[in-house]
Design a protein around this nucleic acid. Structure first.
Lengths: 326, 326
DNA sequence: CGTGCACCTTAAAGCGCTTTAAAGGCTCCC
DNA sequence: GGGAGCCTTTAAAGCGCTTTAAGGTGCACG
């Protein structure tokens, strides 16, 4: 015999399919008695709704569009988590990759074309007004990114960078530099966090040009000067930097301490063991999906903004500076 | 105005929705003239089929079940690739995690319950007869695993291990040991490959107990004896081994050469840079999905078996043995 | 000129679920 | 006793696509 349908449950419960549908979705209407009978019947039969039929009848696609920078491992992690979490909520994900700057627009178009009900923009750096306009077309959440007027979910980047810097200062470092992440609001926030920490400690901040990738970090190695501590924009760049340092015979953390940002899988490897700032990917994702869901269900119209606390993860690449030790 | 429906295309093309449906799916029936008109109309309107409606009418769920060992990074990679590739083919993926031995049965039950049309078992080591029985219930493909009587897709593990061993031998190593992967057909195949290569070279094979994880590899470090070359069951264990060696002050590849298996993301890291055997994940996935698709479309009833060629990837952890150098 | 046949085309019946308008039952009160 | 008014329940009409059986058409052939 085949899998039970809504109609089978209705028969078993002695009511109509309409009632069953209402009960199973927790919609108001059915009486307590019906509710109980229906739930029992559904349980008894092991009923599982047919997603396709449900979506069809509801005229929804159940699809979420995600715009991501393919080259970012942190984005990969977010996407992976999104895949799991959105599946749990009955959403499909359509991934739209963007490469450099304004390709985002094209990715978004494709996603909208493909019936996505809402968009999640990972680390967007598009102008705020464009985002607002887009948001009028289709609900949108900026994940790991800022823009006033649209929903956003992110970690307090400034605070994260500040804490990483303070960690180095607390270890006794004085000559601490920051390898930045190039243009973009997130890089700016992290940079500011670093600068604030330095200034507050009465030290002169020094920022070295960096970027998002391993190569950028490796390139920055040449500009460290006499620094004994380095905070890097993200883990990828930090790993590149570590690699360059090791190859140059510089001991980490013996000679130089390094802290990254993202707590990407990379940083957790025994070989790398990088001190970094964790972004709590599952929480970011969960909040983002909440915003989307509440928006789609019409439970919300104001702009939602979630800022999560960063968490410093101290691993093996940070230690007191050489001069502070015997 | 809303997105075009099948009916709109039919109107534009001046024919019935039935014809349009037939044409768009490439089904036989419609004449060339109709075909051309329909395609033009669809293109013109920018028609995109509604997946939910299509699945509903076709009484399919569009869902594939994947059973994976969560702890394996190689499986993660396969899953990631599967997610992308199956989305491309219009399939949803349901991931069923299994932990140790016979949990696979439970994972499979859940997946079948959830309307999966077919199952992909990653690295299964369940008894062949059980698999055959299961295959009768729902089409199944063993990915990275062997079992006679059911579809399977894998790399030639024996050959891969043989080539890795031969690579070490060619570099001049004589004392080469193999760290095995514990029970399971795959581990056995790789072990056999190593033994064949050694025997063929007139050397005595020596196998050290290992396992799938980093800790297993690290533990094996103590048993290497005077070996100058090591082939390891997989990359995870190899990385663990490397770590243990480095901590013990053994230089790699200066004192000992190490080769892994899987070409996992781990091995590609600059820090690790592990010589390994690549499994061509995209190809594995593509073939697996092909088998599934052809089976579901009823184009095939014989058992399909795909064995791909492994590819040795020489990186930085293998070099001539110390004695062979100045 | 009918017939028969091969091809195309299409009307229509769903797929399993949602949703809405209307029916059905109650209670309550005049 | 007969509505009015309220709460439940349900019949029925889709959602957009697939599929099948039946209906044309045109052509070769007798």
């Amino acid at each position: 015999m085949s899998r039970p349908r809504l109609a089978d449950v209705a028969t078993a419960a002695g009511c109509s399919t309409a009632s069953v549908s209402l009960v199973l979705r927790g919609a108001p209407g059915p009486s307590e008695a019906t509710r109980v009978r229906v739930l029992a019947a559904a349980e008894e039969l092991g009923y599982r709704p047919d997603r396709a039929a449900s979506l069809l009848a509801r005229r929804r696609s159940g699809m979420l569009g995600v715009v991501t920078d393919v080259r970012s491992t942190f984005h990969s992690e977010l996407v992976e988590e999104l895949l799991a979490a959105s599946a749990r909520r009955g959403f499909d994900l359509l991934i739209g990759a963007r490469s450099p700057a304004r390709d985002e627009e094209r990715a978004v178009e494709t996603l909208i074309d493909s019936r996505c009900e809402a968009l999640l923009l990972l680390g967007t750096s598009s102008p705020g007004e464009w985002l607002v306009a887009l948001d009028g077309q289709v609900p949108l959440v900026a994940v790991t990114g800022r823009a006033s007027g649209v929903d956003s979910v992110r970690v307090d980047d400034e605070r994260g960078a500040r804490e990483a810097t303070e960690h180095l200062l607390a270890l006794g470092h004085r000559a601490v530099v920051h390898v930045d992440g190039g243009p973009g609001t997130i890089a700016a926030d992290r940079c500011r966090g670093y600068e604030r920490a330095m200034t507050a400690a009465g030290l002169e901040p020094r920022v070295v040009r960096g970027g998002h990738g391993e190569a950028d970090g490796a390139a920055a190695a040449a500009d460290l000067g006499a620094a004994t501590g380095v905070t890097v924009f993200n883990d990828r760049a930090a790993v590149g930097l570590l690699d360059a340092l090791v190859r140059a015979g510089v001991r980490v953390p013996g000679d130089v301490s390094v802290a990254g940002f993202d707590d990407s899988p990379l940083s957790r490897l025994a070989h790398v063991d990088l001190t970094t700032v964790s972004q709590d990917v599952p929480a970011l994702v969960e909040h983002a999906l909440d915003l989307v869901a509440r928006r789609l269900d019409g439970e919300r119209d104001e702009v939602g903004e979630v800022v999560l606390a960063p968490r410093l993860v101290v691993r093996g690449t940070t230690a007191p500076p050489p001069c502070a030790r015997p």
